[in-house]
Design a protein around this nucleic acid. Sequence first.
DNA 1: CATGAATGAGGTTTCATTCAT
DNA 2: GATGAATGAAACCTCATTCAT
Lengths: 215, 215, 215, 215
Amino acid sequence: MAATSSSAQEPRSRDADRSQQTILLAARDEFALYGLAGARVDRIAERADINKRLIYYYFKSKDDLFLAVLENTYADIRAAEQKLHLDEMDPVEAIRELVSFTWHYYLEHPEFISLLNSENQHNAAHLKKSSRIQEMNSPLVQMLDTVLERGRRQALFRAGIDPIQLYISIASICYFYLSNNQTLSTIFGRDLRAPKAMAQRLSHMTDMVLGYVMH
Amino acid sequence: MAATSSSAQEPRSRDADRSQQTILLAARDEFALYGLAGARVDRIAERADINKRLIYYYFKSKDDLFLAVLENTYADIRAAEQKLHLDEMDPVEAIRELVSFTWHYYLEHPEFISLLNSENQHNAAHLKKSSRIQEMNSPLVQMLDTVLERGRRQALFRAGIDPIQLYISIASICYFYLSNNQTLSTIFGRDLRAPKAMAQRLSHMTDMVLGYVMH
Amino acid sequence: MAATSSSAQEPRSRDADRSQQTILLAARDEFALYGLAGARVDRIAERADINKRLIYYYFKSKDDLFLAVLENTYADIRAAEQKLHLDEMDPVEAIRELVSFTWHYYLEHPEFISLLNSENQHNAAHLKKSSRIQEMNSPLVQMLDTVLERGRRQALFRAGIDPIQLYISIASICYFYLSNNQTLSTIFGRDLRAPKAMAQRLSHMTDMVLGYVMH
Amino acid sequence: MAATSSSAQEPRSRDADRSQQTILLAARDEFALYGLAGARVDRIAERADINKRLIYYYFKSKDDLFLAVLENTYADIRAAEQKLHLDEMDPVEAIRELVSFTWHYYLEHPEFISLLNSENQHNAAHLKKSSRIQEMNSPLVQMLDTVLERGRRQALFRAGIDPIQLYISIASICYFYLSNNQTLSTIFGRDLRAPKAMAQRLSHMTDMVLGYVMH
DNA sequence: CATGAATGAGGTTTCATTCAT
DNA sequence: GATGAATGAAACCTCATTCAT
């Protein structure tokens, strides 16, 4: 009965927006838990506590729903990245912060990892169709470039570092440890989710990245 | 590349080992392509050109078949690792070789990545049931530990490096780049599969790992 | 004979109650004819002239459907028993009527016998899960107890008759003759379904029960 | 290594006879437990610890095997009945013994009940094809007739009792109580298998039958 | 805006039975 | 006499989706 999300002009029922949002959240959880193929539209309806038909009313198909979820997910992480302002920090501190942010973001958003895995299994077929996502160019790479440049000028960092390669590497070491945690723990017979192991991991990753950029 | 068991050329049939092997290969491809949930037993039978019923005759269920494929896959990479003999090499060269091997192995075995992604999505439920796999404790970790120790004694490497953390990091940077290639390429608007990008990647990873271990 | 819910003549469809009822009837026939294991869901759908999927929509599984049929079947016989009002009749007449009712009910409801045989083969596994049925405690036993008591007070019946034992015995002699009719006829080389044999049977049973209770 | 069953002349391998016997026993258990439709040929082979193919070698099909089991079962009960020699006993005692024998035989041979139920569900289709079984005309009926006649001549029993009707009634009250025990216990909320209930049942049945024949 | 009813296609699995040795 | 390998048909059940209101 008061000011919620819905932008401005179009007086589309608040309920409509709310239903869509509810569906998106439920779908996100379902897709994250079971992947695209394993997810069940029935279960999404159940989670959202709405009629299944409504899902088809708002989103055309399961695939389109998946894309919508993906778009939402990307929008979220991009928004979070925006708030980092790495370019205003001391270069070394900025790198440290970037590793930490990435690590914690993935940690707190397991659905991000899961959804990306699903999407990659499908060769990014959904993303490729989405104009919205392709516009959301990661501003982080820009920021990172600035940081690297400043570090180099202060003779802290080595020259010639490709920000995208570095960004991917940082993402890698955070992402893989979490995404493959279960198989790794099983193979190595070691609980890689234990608090101590987690702390060591963050420290190891930070060392690794700084060891690379600084020299 | 030779040497199977069966007597001569009779058109398949009546060779249990061969049938099982054929099924496993077909299943590996199908699971790699579509994931566990997306894979179709019918399609596996088609690929293997055998009666679908035979799949259930030898492997009890789709899940058990998936586990068998996983076990095979792990056995393969472990066998390949064994042949590296890193502990007989110069420490720096050994690390370089390990990165290169991992990179190329993943590159040539996309099914490895795909299968592991599937298994992790299922919280390693299959692997956890397997006694065989838990025994295949990577001797690579042993090897890697030896390499690190020798490097440290030759004052080349820094002390206190956890071989498992290092192994995971090496795996990470290789794995993630390939596994998430499609979404990354789409997001960054850059073909990360292009030969030049691939070469740069290997070089970047090697630098990164050596930069970390060498100090 | 008359009075269903739905509005008019449109060809089935969109009437949940009706669909469920149709399925139940078709299932009853199929289960009665082939037993639980021998019954085919496909055939039930055919008999009911509805989409097979609908069976699973309303009843979760073949077993659940079987239970629903059983519950219905028990409800029917209990309802019929209620209408007898044995306790308002002369005691001897009441017993005679009970035997006759039981005999004719089984005769006209062969599915009752068949379904119970199936259920007993499964150790009453379905019934044991049903809360509904355990509540349908036969009021007939109550009625029967009243009849026996009144007969005893009028010095017609002997004392100490357990109504449940008596009820089971009455059911036995009716049920077994019909349920095992085919094997008995074959073994004895005598058509036990012939009208004359049937009439003799009812007479024999009535004599037997009265001979027992009266003395 | 010594005198077993196999008749005389034909020197058919002892193993062959033994295999067939093993299969029959395993099949009897399986059919008794699951009915004809629910029984699994694989499970019979497992129970018998022989190769499934052998079942088809000795018995042509599942149905033929079922018939063989039925024939065996009937042969067993007929043999047991032969040993009663009711016609040499006091008439009242003979009836008492017959009830007791029937009760205990069914009790100790639950497979008899189960197999007959299956066969009746199939309208005695197997029995009707078997010449062997139709020859095994129950000598018990003969015996029973003699007993009834002697009882009548001693003025103990009433006249005009049909031995087959009586036989069926005795079978009924024993059979039904055991065959439908599970549903009855569930419906009445009373453990009809409890030792005390069982003793009461035998007593009740004896009273009932004697009450009828004696007058 | 919202919903219960309905469906065709196809999923995994099971079955009795036969083939080839 | 005995057996492991193989199969076609069909079983139960599930799925994304649409119909009718």
